[in-house]
Structures are given as structure tokens and as C-alpha cells.
């Protein structure tokens, strides 16, 4: 046992060092930094108590970013998961050309989000982008979906859905293929129609997959902002500012590191809650498998 412990520690040492220096240490220092002021030039950081948190609560842009992020999550998570399930059901059957369909759905997943953003900027381009060209066919005028406060968040959410649905599809597809045909046959013999089979047999069996995909979708909704940077820069007027993007702006455009640390703490808490929730939920619900 003593020797095994030594061996184990030797094997774990490289991973432990890297994790401590670049993940656990930063988390602790982030929380610590929220209680100090941002150092300026020769002015060192001073203890500030809860000033940063008071600033957070009084900061309208923070609340807007939080609201935006919740709406963005509320749009992208159900839409990408729902579409993923539909896609998986479509390509799971014996339809001709399903190889092509699967490729069509999955391809956006492979592209860098920055490249995806470039493609969609052109798509949304007022006047000559594809959307306006199609509107033109129906005699409708030009739009500026990215440039208007009331549509911009929806426009960037659409990009995320396009990128992610195909990725989630493959998890649903694998789960569907693992469902024994005999179960579905049995339900059919009992006289269940397609909708009943889906609701009573397939959907419950997909629960673990749904949870897994949901956790991924939540994390992505708070973590991925490359397209925001490229397409809107958080604008117009912070209409597309998500929490992580706002954190990036505060930390690296305004260089207010103490306040950025406070925003990081909020994000860490959000992601921490997701993982605690996942833990409790997975423990209770998924073990029947």
C-alpha cells in the first residue's frame, strides 16, 4: 500500500501540477480577487470587502447580460435538442439517402464557430444577404437582423442552434439504435400507434441521453461566445451581450480585472450548480438502466 501510494503520486504528479496551476488555483484566486480592487499601474490592489459585488448588483449591463444569457439558453437549448431528436428519428429509419441526411445535419458541427459566424454574417447581410434575397423574391424590403436590438439575440441564437443540433443528434441516434426492436414490436402488438410508442416507450428510454445532452447544451450556452465576438461584438447596445462575453470585455477591453473576477465567479457558480444538479439528477433518475 505504501509503495502503491508513492507510485500513484508519481503518476499523478504531472496532471496534478497542471490542474492546480491552470484550473483549481485560478478558481481560488478568482474568488479571492473579488474582495480586492483592480491594481492600477503603481497602485496595488486594496482590500475592498464586498464592493465588487455591490458594483455587480448595481450594474445594469450585468443584469442585461444575465437576462440575455437566460433567454439565449432558453432559446438554444430546447431548439437544438428538439431538432436533434427529430433529426435522429429521421435518419434512424430505413429512408433512402439517410447517409446524406446525416452528413447534412452533422457537418456544421465540424466547422470552427468563428468560420460559422463568418458564413452567417454574410447570410444576414442587409440588402444582399441570402435572407434579404429571399425576402426580395416575395417583394419584402431589406432587414438588418443583426443590427436591431429586438432581433439580434434571436439571430445569434439561430447560429448556435445550427451549429449544435447535429452534434446532439448523434447521441440521440446512438440511443435510438440501442433500443431493442422487440420492445417496439411488443408495443405495436398491443395496438399502440406511432405517437404512443414514442411517448410511452422511446422517450422514457432516452432519458439518460436527454440529460447528458441537456448538460452539454447548458454549458455551451454559457461558454461559447466566439460568434458574438465576430458577429455583433455584444451589440447593438448590449442586446447580444452574454455573461462570458461581458466578462471578456470587462477583463480585456476595460482591463478591470477585479470586476472581471467577480463576473467569473458568477459563471463558476452557474456551472457549479449545473454539475451539482446533474449529479443529483443522474443519481436518482438514471440508474434503472
Amino acid at each position: 500500500m505504501r509503495r502503491q501510494t508513492l507510485t500513484a503520486w508519481a503518476l499523478l504528479l504531472p496532471a496534478a501540477c497542471l490542474l492546480v496551476v491552470f484550473t483549481h488555483g485560478p478558481v481560488l484566486r478568482t474568488v479571492l480577487a473579488t474582495f480586492y480592487t483592480t491594481p492600477h499601474g503603481r497602485l496595488p490592489a486594496k482590500f475592498a470587502g464586498f464592493d465588487n459585488y455591490a458594483h455587480l448588483i448595481a450594474d445594469p449591463i450585468f443584469w442585461q447580460a444575465l437576462r440575455n444569457n437566460l433567454l439565449y439558453a432558453g432559446l438554444t437549448i430546447p431548439a437544438s435538442m428538439g431538432l436533434a431528436l427529430v433529426m435522429a428519428l429521421l435518419v434512424n429509419g430505413r429512408m433512402r439517402g439517410r447517409g446524406f441526411l446525416r452528413m447534412a445535419f452533422f457537418t456544421p458541427t465540424v466547422l470552427p464557430l468563428i468560420a460559422v459566424a463568418n458564413i452567417w454574417i454574410f447570410f444576414y447581410q442587409p440588402g444582399f444577404g441570402l435572407i434579404d434575397q429571399i425576402r426580395g423574391l416575395f417583394g419584402l424590403g431589406a432587414t438588418n437582423l443583426l443590427g436591431q436590438g429586438d432581433s439580434a439575440l434571436y439571430a445569434v441564437a439561430a447560429v448556435a442552434v445550427w451549429k449544435e443540433a447535429g452534434f446532439f443528434m448523434i447521441f440521440y441516434l446512438a440511443a435510438l439504435q440501442a433500443i431493442p426492436q422487440s420492445l417496439i414490436e411488443a408495443a405495436r402488438l398491443e395496438g399502440a400507434n406511432a405517437l404512443q410508442i414514442f411517448r410511452r416507450v422511446i422517450w422514457p428510454l432516452l432519458t439518460p441521453t436527454t440529460l447528458f445532452v441537456a448538460v452539454n447544451a447548458v454549458v455551451n450556452a454559457f461558454r461559447l461566445v466566439d460568434h458574438i465576438y465576430q458577429m455583433t461584438g455584444g451589440g447593438p447596445n448590449n442586446a447580444t451581450a452574454l455573461l462570458f462575453y461581458y466578462l471578456y470585455q470587462v477583463g480585456f477591453q476595460f482591463w478591470d480585472t477585479a470586476y472581471a473576477a467577480t463576473l467569473t465567479t458568477v459563471l463558476v457558480v452557474v456551472l457549479g450548480l449545473v454539475s451539482v444538479g446533474q449529479f443529483l439528477f443522474l443519481d436518482r433518475k438514471v440508474h434503472y438502466q
Binding site: 500500500m1 500513484a8 478558481v27 473576477a261 456551472l271
Partner: peptide
């Protein structure tokens, strides 16, 4: 291998799957 503190250490490793370095950009 069997060693002291195994499950605690493993939990710390798993933590990185949620709180990814992606968001710890300032530090």
C-alpha cells in the same frame, strides 16, 4: 492503484470537466 485520497483527487479531476479553463481567462 490503491492510495490515500483517491476519491477526493478524482473528484477534483472531474471538476475540471465543468469549470473549464475556457472561462478562467483573467487569472
Amino acid at each position: 492503484l490503491q492510495f490515500a485520497g483517491k476519491s477526493g483527487l478524482f473528484a477534483l479531476v472531474l471538476m475540471q470537466m465543468m469549470v473549464m479553463p475556457d472561462i478562467l481567462i483573467v487569472e
